[in-house]
Design a protein around this nucleic acid. Structure first.
Lengths: 208, 208
DNA sequence: TTGACAAGCGGAGAGTTCTCCGATTAAATC
DNA sequence: GATTTAATCGGAGAACTCTCCGCTTGTCAA
Protein backbone atom coordinates (compact mmCIF):
# COMPACT_ATOMS: atom_id res chain seq x y z
CA UNK A 1 0.00 0.00 0.00
CA UNK A 2 2.82 2.33 0.84
CA UNK A 3 5.23 2.63 -2.01
CA UNK A 4 4.97 -0.57 -3.98
CA UNK A 5 3.24 -0.94 -7.33
CA UNK A 6 0.24 -3.21 -7.20
CA UNK A 7 0.66 -5.54 -10.13
CA UNK A 8 -1.49 -8.37 -8.78
CA UNK A 9 -4.81 -8.63 -7.06
CA UNK A 10 -4.43 -8.92 -3.31
CA UNK A 11 -5.52 -12.20 -1.84
CA UNK A 12 -8.66 -12.00 0.21
CA UNK A 13 -7.18 -13.49 3.39
CA UNK A 14 -4.23 -11.13 3.13
CA UNK A 15 -6.47 -8.11 2.82
CA UNK A 16 -8.52 -9.24 5.78
CA UNK A 17 -5.40 -9.78 7.84
CA UNK A 18 -4.11 -6.36 6.98
CA UNK A 19 -7.31 -4.73 8.08
CA UNK A 20 -7.40 -6.80 11.21
CA UNK A 21 -3.85 -5.84 12.12
CA UNK A 22 -4.67 -2.17 11.69
CA UNK A 23 -7.71 -2.47 13.93
CA UNK A 24 -5.88 -4.33 16.67
CA UNK A 25 -2.88 -2.02 16.52
CA UNK A 26 -5.07 1.04 16.62
CA UNK A 27 -6.74 -0.15 19.81
CA UNK A 28 -3.51 -1.19 21.51
CA UNK A 29 -1.75 2.01 20.55
CA UNK A 30 -4.42 4.25 21.95
CA UNK A 31 -4.79 2.15 25.07
CA UNK A 32 -1.13 1.83 25.98
CA UNK A 33 0.72 4.28 23.79
CA UNK A 34 2.76 3.40 20.72
CA UNK A 35 6.00 2.96 22.63
CA UNK A 36 4.64 0.44 25.09
CA UNK A 37 3.20 -1.92 22.50
CA UNK A 38 5.55 -4.47 20.93
CA UNK A 39 5.15 -6.04 17.53
CA UNK A 40 4.88 -9.40 19.24
CA UNK A 41 2.01 -8.17 21.32
CA UNK A 42 0.19 -6.97 18.25
CA UNK A 43 0.73 -10.33 16.54
CA UNK A 44 -0.53 -12.24 19.55
CA UNK A 45 -3.51 -10.02 20.09
CA UNK A 46 -4.38 -10.31 16.42
CA UNK A 47 -3.81 -14.09 16.56
CA UNK A 48 -1.39 -14.19 13.68
CA UNK A 49 2.25 -15.20 13.38
CA UNK A 50 4.88 -12.52 13.68
CA UNK A 51 6.04 -13.33 10.17
CA UNK A 52 2.63 -12.36 8.88
CA UNK A 53 2.71 -9.09 10.74
CA UNK A 54 6.12 -8.22 9.37
CA UNK A 55 5.14 -9.05 5.80
CA UNK A 56 2.39 -6.48 6.03
CA UNK A 57 4.34 -3.83 7.88
CA UNK A 58 8.07 -3.79 7.85
CA UNK A 59 8.24 -2.21 11.31
CA UNK A 60 6.20 -0.32 13.86
CA UNK A 61 7.00 2.97 12.22
CA UNK A 62 5.40 1.83 8.97
CA UNK A 63 2.39 0.52 10.86
CA UNK A 64 1.89 3.88 12.52
CA UNK A 65 2.17 5.63 9.22
CA UNK A 66 -0.49 3.36 7.74
CA UNK A 67 -2.79 4.42 10.55
CA UNK A 68 -2.56 8.13 9.76
CA UNK A 69 -2.30 7.64 6.02
CA UNK A 70 -6.01 8.09 5.48
CA UNK A 71 -6.09 11.39 7.27
CA UNK A 72 -3.32 13.05 5.34
CA UNK A 73 -5.47 14.04 2.36
CA UNK A 74 -7.77 15.93 4.71
CA UNK A 75 -4.88 17.90 6.13
CA UNK A 76 -3.78 19.06 2.71
CA UNK A 77 -7.33 19.71 1.60
CA UNK A 78 -7.67 21.95 4.59
CA UNK A 79 -4.48 23.75 3.69
CA UNK A 80 -5.35 24.09 0.03
CA UNK A 81 -8.73 25.55 0.90
CA UNK A 82 -7.06 28.05 3.13
CA UNK A 83 -4.55 28.96 0.45
CA UNK A 84 -7.27 29.32 -2.16
CA UNK A 85 -9.26 31.66 0.08
CA UNK A 86 -6.19 33.72 0.89
CA UNK A 87 -4.55 33.63 -2.52
CA UNK A 88 -4.15 37.40 -2.57
CA UNK A 89 -2.92 37.84 0.96
CA UNK A 90 0.79 38.37 1.58
CA UNK A 91 2.90 35.23 1.89
CA UNK A 92 3.46 35.57 5.60
CA UNK A 93 -0.29 35.16 6.12
CA UNK A 94 -0.15 32.05 4.00
CA UNK A 95 2.78 30.66 5.90
CA UNK A 96 1.07 31.24 9.18
CA UNK A 97 -2.10 29.51 8.06
CA UNK A 98 -0.27 26.53 6.69
CA UNK A 99 1.91 26.10 9.76
CA UNK A 100 -1.02 26.53 12.06
CA UNK A 101 -2.83 23.70 10.35
CA UNK A 102 0.19 21.48 10.38
CA UNK A 103 0.80 22.01 14.07
CA UNK A 104 -2.83 21.36 14.80
CA UNK A 105 -2.49 18.07 12.95
CA UNK A 106 0.64 17.31 14.91
CA UNK A 107 -1.15 17.84 18.22
CA UNK A 108 -4.07 15.68 17.17
CA UNK A 109 -2.00 12.77 15.92
CA UNK A 110 0.65 13.11 18.56
CA UNK A 111 0.76 9.47 19.55
CA UNK A 112 0.94 7.96 16.08
CA UNK A 113 3.33 10.59 14.77
CA UNK A 114 5.62 9.67 17.60
CA UNK A 115 5.70 6.18 16.20
CA UNK A 116 6.32 7.40 12.68
CA UNK A 117 9.11 9.77 13.60
CA UNK A 118 10.86 8.24 16.58
CA UNK A 119 10.65 4.47 16.22
CA UNK A 120 13.70 3.26 14.31
CA UNK A 121 12.73 2.31 10.79
CA UNK A 122 14.31 0.26 8.05
CA UNK A 123 13.31 2.78 5.46
CA UNK A 124 15.83 5.52 4.71
CA UNK A 125 14.08 8.05 6.90
CA UNK A 126 10.75 8.03 8.58
CA UNK A 127 9.66 11.65 8.67
CA UNK A 128 11.89 12.96 5.99
CA UNK A 129 12.57 12.81 2.30
CA UNK A 130 10.46 10.07 0.64
CA UNK A 131 7.72 10.26 3.18
CA UNK A 132 4.66 11.67 1.38
CA UNK A 133 3.57 13.78 4.34
CA UNK A 134 7.02 15.30 4.52
CA UNK A 135 7.41 15.82 0.79
CA UNK A 136 4.04 17.40 0.31
CA UNK A 137 4.51 19.76 3.19
CA UNK A 138 7.96 20.64 1.97
CA UNK A 139 6.68 21.49 -1.49
CA UNK A 140 4.04 23.74 -0.01
CA UNK A 141 6.55 25.65 2.09
CA UNK A 142 8.99 26.03 -0.74
CA UNK A 143 6.30 27.51 -2.95
CA UNK A 144 5.56 30.13 -0.33
CA UNK A 145 9.21 31.08 0.05
CA UNK A 146 9.58 31.40 -3.69
CA UNK A 147 6.61 33.68 -3.79
CA UNK A 148 8.37 35.95 -1.33
CA UNK A 149 11.59 36.08 -3.26
CA UNK A 150 11.64 34.41 -6.68
CA UNK A 151 15.34 35.21 -7.03
CA UNK A 152 16.05 32.54 -4.46
CA UNK A 153 15.30 29.87 -7.00
CA UNK A 154 18.77 29.93 -8.52
CA UNK A 155 20.64 29.72 -5.23
CA UNK A 156 18.40 27.04 -3.81
CA UNK A 157 17.77 29.21 -0.79
CA UNK A 158 14.04 28.55 -0.79
CA UNK A 159 14.69 24.86 -0.79
CA UNK A 160 17.14 25.25 2.05
CA UNK A 161 14.72 27.33 4.07
CA UNK A 162 12.00 24.77 3.55
CA UNK A 163 14.38 22.01 4.65
CA UNK A 164 15.17 23.99 7.76
CA UNK A 165 11.57 24.69 8.56
CA UNK A 166 10.72 21.03 8.13
CA UNK A 167 13.34 20.26 10.74
CA UNK A 168 11.65 22.69 13.09
CA UNK A 169 8.34 20.96 12.53
CA UNK A 170 9.65 17.59 13.55
CA UNK A 171 8.31 15.95 16.62
CA UNK A 172 11.42 16.31 18.76
CA UNK A 173 11.95 19.97 17.89
CA UNK A 174 8.32 20.85 18.45
CA UNK A 175 7.99 18.92 21.66
CA UNK A 176 11.24 20.43 22.90
CA UNK A 177 9.76 23.88 22.51
CA UNK A 178 6.53 22.82 24.15
CA UNK A 179 7.97 20.95 27.09
CA UNK A 180 11.45 22.17 27.83
CA UNK A 181 11.09 25.75 26.60
CA UNK A 182 7.55 25.92 27.83
CA UNK A 183 6.17 27.67 24.76
CA UNK A 184 2.55 27.43 23.73
CA UNK A 185 1.66 26.24 20.22
CA UNK A 186 0.84 29.81 19.36
CA UNK A 187 4.15 31.17 20.56
CA UNK A 188 5.96 28.58 18.52
CA UNK A 189 3.94 29.52 15.50
CA UNK A 190 4.79 33.18 15.94
CA UNK A 191 8.48 32.51 16.41
CA UNK A 192 8.56 30.38 13.29
CA UNK A 193 6.83 33.02 11.21
CA UNK A 194 9.09 35.69 12.58
CA UNK A 195 12.22 33.73 11.88
CA UNK A 196 11.32 32.63 8.39
CA UNK A 197 9.69 35.83 7.18
CA UNK A 198 11.47 39.05 7.84
CA UNK A 199 8.43 41.05 9.03
CA UNK A 200 6.36 39.46 11.75
CA UNK A 201 2.63 39.82 11.85
CA UNK A 202 1.19 42.18 14.39
CA UNK A 203 -0.94 40.36 16.88
CA UNK A 204 -4.31 41.75 15.92
CA UNK A 205 -4.24 40.83 12.26
CA UNK A 206 -3.90 37.12 12.95
CA UNK A 207 -6.78 34.83 12.16
CA UNK A 208 -8.62 33.46 15.21
CA UNK B 1 32.28 10.44 34.30
CA UNK B 2 29.38 11.80 32.37
CA UNK B 3 26.89 13.45 34.62
CA UNK B 4 27.11 11.72 37.95
CA UNK B 5 28.62 13.16 41.06
CA UNK B 6 31.75 11.35 42.15
CA UNK B 7 31.34 10.95 45.87
CA UNK B 8 33.59 7.92 46.19
CA UNK B 9 36.96 6.93 44.91
CA UNK B 10 36.74 4.68 41.86
CA UNK B 11 38.01 1.18 42.39
CA UNK B 12 41.20 0.40 40.55
CA UNK B 13 39.89 -2.63 38.68
CA UNK B 14 36.84 -0.68 37.61
CA UNK B 15 38.96 2.14 36.25
CA UNK B 16 41.13 -0.33 34.37
CA UNK B 17 38.06 -1.98 32.89
CA UNK B 18 36.65 1.31 31.82
CA UNK B 19 39.81 2.24 30.00
CA UNK B 20 40.03 -1.17 28.43
CA UNK B 21 36.46 -0.96 27.16
CA UNK B 22 37.17 2.41 25.60
CA UNK B 23 40.26 1.06 23.86
CA UNK B 24 38.51 -2.01 22.50
CA UNK B 25 35.45 -0.07 21.42
CA UNK B 26 37.55 2.54 19.72
CA UNK B 27 39.31 -0.09 17.63
CA UNK B 28 36.13 -1.96 16.72
CA UNK B 29 34.24 1.21 15.87
CA UNK B 30 36.88 2.48 13.51
CA UNK B 31 37.36 -0.94 11.94
CA UNK B 32 33.72 -1.80 11.36
CA UNK B 33 31.76 1.38 11.94
CA UNK B 34 29.71 2.16 15.01
CA UNK B 35 26.52 0.69 13.62
CA UNK B 36 27.99 -2.71 12.85
CA UNK B 37 29.45 -3.30 16.29
CA UNK B 38 27.16 -4.73 18.96
CA UNK B 39 27.54 -4.26 22.69
CA UNK B 40 27.91 -8.03 22.98
CA UNK B 41 30.79 -7.97 20.57
CA UNK B 42 32.52 -5.29 22.58
CA UNK B 43 32.05 -7.26 25.80
CA UNK B 44 33.41 -10.44 24.23
CA UNK B 45 36.35 -8.74 22.61
CA UNK B 46 37.17 -7.03 25.89
CA UNK B 47 36.68 -10.32 27.73
CA UNK B 48 34.22 -8.97 30.23
CA UNK B 49 30.62 -9.77 31.01
CA UNK B 50 27.94 -7.74 29.36
CA UNK B 51 26.72 -6.60 32.77
CA UNK B 52 30.09 -5.01 33.36
CA UNK B 53 29.95 -3.22 30.05
CA UNK B 54 26.50 -1.86 30.77
CA UNK B 55 27.44 -0.66 34.22
CA UNK B 56 30.15 1.48 32.70
CA UNK B 57 28.15 2.72 29.74
CA UNK B 58 24.42 2.66 29.76
CA UNK B 59 24.25 2.17 26.00
CA UNK B 60 26.26 2.48 22.82
CA UNK B 61 25.37 6.12 22.50
CA UNK B 62 26.95 6.91 25.84
CA UNK B 63 30.01 4.90 24.92
CA UNK B 64 30.44 6.89 21.74
CA UNK B 65 30.07 10.11 23.64
CA UNK B 66 32.77 9.04 26.08
CA UNK B 67 35.08 8.52 23.12
CA UNK B 68 34.74 12.09 21.87
CA UNK B 69 34.45 13.63 25.30
CA UNK B 70 38.15 14.40 25.51
CA UNK B 71 38.16 16.27 22.25
CA UNK B 72 35.33 18.62 23.03
CA UNK B 73 37.41 21.09 25.04
CA UNK B 74 39.69 21.51 22.04
CA UNK B 75 36.75 22.37 19.82
CA UNK B 76 35.61 25.11 22.14
CA UNK B 77 39.11 26.34 22.73
CA UNK B 78 39.44 26.69 19.00
CA UNK B 79 36.18 28.62 18.83
CA UNK B 80 37.01 30.83 21.78
CA UNK B 81 40.37 31.71 20.25
CA UNK B 82 38.64 32.64 17.05
CA UNK B 83 36.08 34.76 18.88
CA UNK B 84 38.76 36.50 20.89
CA UNK B 85 40.70 37.38 17.76
CA UNK B 86 37.59 38.63 16.02
CA UNK B 87 35.93 40.28 18.97
CA UNK B 88 35.43 43.49 17.04
CA UNK B 89 34.22 42.00 13.81
CA UNK B 90 30.50 42.03 13.03
CA UNK B 91 28.49 39.13 14.43
CA UNK B 92 27.96 37.49 11.08
CA UNK B 93 31.70 36.94 10.84
CA UNK B 94 31.66 35.39 14.26
CA UNK B 95 28.75 33.15 13.40
CA UNK B 96 30.48 31.97 10.28
CA UNK B 97 33.69 31.16 12.12
CA UNK B 98 31.93 29.28 14.85
CA UNK B 99 29.78 27.27 12.48
CA UNK B 100 32.72 26.50 10.28
CA UNK B 101 34.60 25.02 13.19
CA UNK B 102 31.64 23.07 14.35
CA UNK B 103 31.05 21.55 10.94
CA UNK B 104 34.71 20.71 10.63
CA UNK B 105 34.45 18.87 13.93
CA UNK B 106 31.35 17.12 12.68
CA UNK B 107 33.15 15.89 9.56
CA UNK B 108 36.13 14.67 11.58
CA UNK B 109 34.11 12.80 14.19
CA UNK B 110 31.48 11.64 11.77
CA UNK B 111 31.49 8.02 12.83
CA UNK B 112 31.32 8.55 16.57
CA UNK B 113 28.84 11.39 16.32
CA UNK B 114 26.60 9.07 14.39
CA UNK B 115 26.64 6.82 17.42
CA UNK B 116 25.92 9.68 19.79
CA UNK B 117 23.08 11.12 17.77
CA UNK B 118 21.41 8.20 16.05
CA UNK B 119 21.73 5.19 18.31
CA UNK B 120 18.67 5.06 20.57
CA UNK B 121 19.63 6.12 24.06
CA UNK B 122 18.09 5.75 27.48
CA UNK B 123 18.99 9.28 28.40
CA UNK B 124 16.40 11.96 27.64
CA UNK B 125 18.08 13.02 24.44
CA UNK B 126 21.41 12.23 22.98
CA UNK B 127 22.43 15.29 21.00
CA UNK B 128 20.12 17.73 22.60
CA UNK B 129 19.43 19.53 25.82
CA UNK B 130 21.57 18.13 28.68
CA UNK B 131 24.35 17.03 26.40
CA UNK B 132 27.34 19.28 27.18
CA UNK B 133 28.40 19.55 23.56
CA UNK B 134 24.93 20.65 22.63
CA UNK B 135 24.49 23.03 25.52
CA UNK B 136 27.81 24.73 25.10
CA UNK B 137 27.29 25.23 21.41
CA UNK B 138 23.81 26.51 22.03
CA UNK B 139 25.04 29.07 24.52
CA UNK B 140 27.63 30.30 22.05
CA UNK B 141 25.10 30.76 19.29
CA UNK B 142 22.62 32.48 21.53
CA UNK B 143 25.25 34.97 22.62
CA UNK B 144 25.94 35.85 19.01
CA UNK B 145 22.28 36.36 18.21
CA UNK B 146 21.86 38.59 21.23
CA UNK B 147 24.78 40.67 20.12
CA UNK B 148 22.98 41.26 16.83
CA UNK B 149 19.74 42.29 18.44
CA UNK B 150 19.71 42.64 22.23
CA UNK B 151 15.99 43.42 22.13
CA UNK B 152 15.37 39.79 21.33
CA UNK B 153 16.17 38.87 24.89
CA UNK B 154 12.71 39.62 26.17
CA UNK B 155 10.87 37.67 23.50
CA UNK B 156 13.17 34.69 23.66
CA UNK B 157 13.78 34.99 19.96
CA UNK B 158 17.53 34.53 20.28
CA UNK B 159 16.97 31.37 22.20
CA UNK B 160 14.54 30.17 19.60
CA UNK B 161 16.91 30.94 16.77
CA UNK B 162 19.68 29.09 18.53
CA UNK B 163 17.39 26.11 19.05
CA UNK B 164 16.57 26.15 15.38
CA UNK B 165 20.16 26.42 14.32
CA UNK B 166 21.11 23.54 16.57
CA UNK B 167 18.52 21.45 14.77
CA UNK B 168 20.16 22.34 11.49
CA UNK B 169 23.52 21.26 12.85
CA UNK B 170 22.31 17.81 13.74
CA UNK B 171 23.70 14.86 11.96
CA UNK B 172 20.64 13.96 9.98
CA UNK B 173 19.98 17.51 8.83
CA UNK B 174 23.59 18.07 7.86
CA UNK B 175 24.00 14.75 6.12
CA UNK B 176 20.72 15.32 4.31
CA UNK B 177 22.11 18.51 2.83
CA UNK B 178 25.37 16.84 1.96
CA UNK B 179 24.01 13.68 0.42
CA UNK B 180 20.49 14.23 -0.82
CA UNK B 181 20.74 17.93 -1.63
CA UNK B 182 24.30 17.53 -2.81
CA UNK B 183 25.61 20.65 -1.11
CA UNK B 184 29.22 21.08 -0.10
CA UNK B 185 30.13 21.92 3.49
CA UNK B 186 30.83 25.44 2.35
CA UNK B 187 27.51 25.88 0.64
CA UNK B 188 25.74 24.67 3.74
CA UNK B 189 27.71 27.12 5.82
CA UNK B 190 26.76 30.00 3.54
CA UNK B 191 23.10 29.07 3.50
CA UNK B 192 23.06 28.89 7.27
CA UNK B 193 24.69 32.27 7.66
CA UNK B 194 22.36 33.76 5.11
CA UNK B 195 19.29 32.38 6.77
CA UNK B 196 20.20 33.29 10.31
CA UNK B 197 21.71 36.69 9.69
CA UNK B 198 19.83 39.07 7.49
CA UNK B 199 22.78 40.25 5.44
CA UNK B 200 24.89 37.54 3.88
CA UNK B 201 28.64 37.87 3.57
CA UNK B 202 30.03 38.55 0.17
CA UNK B 203 32.23 35.76 -1.03
CA UNK B 204 35.56 37.58 -0.96
CA UNK B 205 35.50 38.66 2.66
CA UNK B 206 35.29 35.14 3.99
CA UNK B 207 38.24 33.69 5.83
CA UNK B 208 40.10 30.95 3.92
C1' DT C 1 47.34 -8.54 58.84
C1' DT C 2 42.62 -9.27 58.99
C1' DG C 3 37.89 -8.96 58.69
C1' DA C 4 33.80 -6.52 57.00
C1' DC C 5 31.32 -4.89 53.30
C1' DA C 6 30.21 -2.16 49.51
C1' DA C 7 31.49 -1.87 44.78
C1' DG C 8 32.23 -4.37 40.91
C1' DC C 9 31.88 -8.62 38.07
C1' DG C 10 29.76 -12.08 35.04
C1' DG C 11 26.55 -14.40 32.60
C1' DA C 12 21.94 -16.45 32.65
C1' DG C 13 17.71 -15.04 31.05
C1' DA C 14 13.69 -12.01 29.80
C1' DG C 15 11.98 -9.48 26.24
C1' DT C 16 12.62 -7.46 21.51
C1' DT C 17 13.04 -7.16 16.51
C1' DC C 18 13.16 -9.42 12.40
C1' DT C 19 14.21 -13.53 9.04
C1' DC C 20 13.62 -17.89 7.02
C1' DC C 21 11.31 -21.60 5.08
C1' DG C 22 8.13 -25.68 5.18
C1' DA C 23 3.16 -25.97 5.41
C1' DT C 24 -1.22 -23.85 3.97
C1' DT C 25 -4.60 -22.03 1.14
C1' DA C 26 -6.80 -18.70 -2.31
C1' DA C 27 -7.60 -18.40 -6.91
C1' DA C 28 -6.77 -19.26 -11.68
C1' DT C 29 -6.91 -23.16 -15.11
C1' DC C 30 -8.36 -27.36 -16.93
C1' DG D 1 -14.52 -30.56 -8.99
C1' DA D 2 -9.69 -31.44 -9.43
C1' DT D 3 -5.16 -29.65 -10.27
C1' DT D 4 -1.66 -26.38 -10.19
C1' DT D 5 0.93 -22.66 -8.44
C1' DA D 6 2.32 -18.90 -6.14
C1' DA D 7 1.08 -15.82 -2.46
C1' DT D 8 0.48 -16.09 2.32
C1' DC D 9 0.86 -17.99 6.81
C1' DG D 10 3.04 -19.41 11.18
C1' DG D 11 6.33 -19.84 14.40
C1' DA D 12 11.00 -21.53 15.42
C1' DG D 13 15.12 -19.36 15.97
C1' DA D 14 19.06 -15.97 15.38
C1' DA D 15 20.75 -11.81 17.02
C1' DC D 16 20.39 -8.12 19.94
C1' DT D 17 19.74 -4.96 24.22
C1' DC D 18 19.53 -4.70 28.85
C1' DT D 19 18.51 -6.37 33.86
C1' DC D 20 19.06 -9.01 37.82
C1' DC D 21 21.43 -11.09 41.41
C1' DG D 22 24.71 -14.46 43.53
C1' DC D 23 29.64 -14.41 43.65
C1' DT D 24 34.22 -12.08 43.81
C1' DT D 25 37.41 -8.62 45.08
C1' DG D 26 39.23 -4.01 46.32
C1' DT D 27 39.49 -0.96 50.15
C1' DC D 28 39.55 0.70 54.64
C1' DA D 29 39.40 0.57 59.56
C1' DA D 30 40.78 -1.82 63.43
Amino acid sequence: MQGEEEGKAIRRDAAKNRLHILEVASVLFSQQGVEQVSMNQIAMEAQIGSGTLYRHFRDKSELCYALINDQIPFLFEDMDDFLAEHAKEPPNQKLEGVLKRFLRFRETKRNLLFGVEEIPSKKPMAFSHQNPLFDQMHALLMAIFQEVDPSEQATGTSEFKADLLMMALRRDAYEFQREIRGRSPDEILQQLCQTFMAQPLTTDEREP
